[in-house]
Design a protein around this nucleic acid. Sequence first.
DNA 1: CGAAAGGCTCTTTTT
DNA 2: GAGCCTTTCG
Length: 736
Amino acid sequence: MDILTELNPAQKKAVQAINGPVLILAGPGSGKTRVITHRVAYLIRTCKVSPRHIIAVTFTNKAAKEMVERLDKLVPGSVKELTIGTFHAICAKILRIDGKAMGIESNFVIYDDDDQTAIIKRCLQELNLDPKQHAPQAIASAISKAKSTLIQPKDYVKRSRSYFEEVVGRVYERYEQMLRESKALDFDDLLMKTVLLFRKHPEVLARYQERYIHVMVDEFQDTNLVQYELVKQISDKYHNICVVGDPDQSIYSWRSADLRNILSFEHDYPDATLILLEQNYRSTKTILETASNVISANKKRKAKRLWTENDDGERTFVIEAYTEQEEAQFVANEIERLVGRSHFRLGDCAVMYRTNAQSRVLEEAFIRYGIPYRLVAGTRFYERREIKDIVAYFRLVQNPHDSVSLQRIINVPGRGIGQQTIGKLSSWAKSMGVSAYDAMQLIVEAKRNKNIDDQPFDVRSSDALARFSELMDDFVEKSQNANLVELFDMVVEKSGYKQSLKNDPDKDERWENIMELRTVAQQYRDLSPRESLTAFLESVALVSDVDGYDEKLDRVTLITLHQAKGLEFQVVFIVGVEEKLLPHIRSIDDPDQLEEERRLCYVGITRAKQRIYLVHAFRRTFMGTSTVNPPSRFLDDIPKNLVATPGWWRGDEPRVSDAVFSWNRVRVDETESKPKVSTGVPAVDLKAGDHVRHSQFGEGVVVNSKKVNDDSEVTVAFSGQGIKRLLLSLAKLENI
DNA sequence: CGAAAGGCTCTTTTT
DNA sequence: GAGCCTTTCG
């Protein structure tokens, strides 16, 4: 297949502009991914560039994986030598290999936000600062911001201007020290330390410059200052740097992403070739126009002319629901209707929202309707307690100095090592200038030599500590010659974790999760014991939620607007299109942040290929309290001639009085829709203990059943599927 | 030391 | 509403 056919002139130009700096401004759906992959293929196949001289940076691991898959078809056999990954993953690799020059050992662990907060809390305690007055989260984000702009603790302290910054400065210094003691790096460190490494050791940088002759960066609008610096460093010799982005889709400023990077690029590389990708292949004219009208209201932006040859398509549906429950109901109902009557499949539909908290009501509605769905974030897998616990054992095996992991599991499951003992242990260790882990080994030794006075603990505590120390030693020993799965099984068993789950009310779910983690570990069993542990832990630390997202599954996707960037769906519902939610209340009084909210809305709309629904609720329960939110100001910017309401959702004036009855409308006007909603007495009467069969969930046992208006809500425990609540009239349950 | 209960505060978005 | 922390009691 020829690399250049099936590309439009602008795309062709982008693929062929391989020498010197290139800035590609790519509108949504303009074939950006295609351009990047074809450009790499062009370099390899036509220009005979060795794949090992090419580096491509993506925003998520999923994007990297996709690119590898596509390239494997275009240039078979080359992908192994290509460097493709996220900034964080690439930097982690660099530091494992070359970090020693910076005092970073190759077995460093990566601390996530949770670990970071844990450390900060410990700092506050040490510095006698009240965590209630100085929110650890706020301090964490201040430190992160500093690191993203390459400000080190000393500089931060020097330039602190307020009391808060002074506090942050003090914490920052101690925080860095603790990370060093734990031989750990946080996310921002991965980037910052790499830049510092390159600054301090030009000879190391030179190696990377020689290797990566062609540099490409995707989602450039969402890079921060360190990332920009890094890209600049690596490409500083050959200047073959190609960045791709869309300022209108910049939605990560809160993560220190800086739109000015695009401007800086034009400034730093005045000879850069500028390429605009403006033809949209994804959406209908109506969707594109809707989106353009929304984004055009932003003041700080360059006007852009997006166009498409696609059909006009359906109008944009703007819906008012009464509450968030009704909103979810509408979405579920409409999806059922679409899938039943038209060619759309469940997998073609996505529901997007501003905050994760909004997903719950949607989930409940889908469960009641019996519609299979997939939640992209939710309670994130790697943030679950049982997963973090098990992972902490592995981290400790890899790096015994990891104090956060030690604190986490030293008494999980309970083995008689309480707060008192832990406190005593760390101060004793500190007084001797060793890590807590080393201190515990001293206790073991003291016991062996019967020199009990060598350590300050009573028999009970010292026994417990010694036993834990020996346990960990066993794991470390195992890790040196057994494969990862064997180690996994040993850890789960011998740590007592498996046993301790027996009393856990969520034991089944937790156990399933642990087994899922085991499958992840299995993927690394071909590597050597040492390598597999490092690779496993690194993948665990750097995954994102979208990475696990599999579009082939035929299920409705529930996803945040942020995560949806880069994805596309036939049908998109954006819910909660209200003031205080989109735009979010915390962005409303800052003009810049407000513009970002608008971009977020724009990203959401432009995900849609065929149909877009913008749904808002008149009344919404926030944190216990019910509030009335006006429709989002963004809706005002959509021309009325583009907007419609689905036929069955009548209500030309969908105001309160009307909306109250809309619930009934869903049922009454539903005649043409596939599922007939019965309002009478359910055909079967189910009670606890009955065995039932469900088309999706299989067989299960009724746990509870209660009357809801004219219907019954039945709670059923399905084998292997967990407990679901279903509406009897909708869920087509069969009594067996 | 650990389990249980009650009280508190936030919840935007995430590599 | 939930997760986290503190308090209380055995």
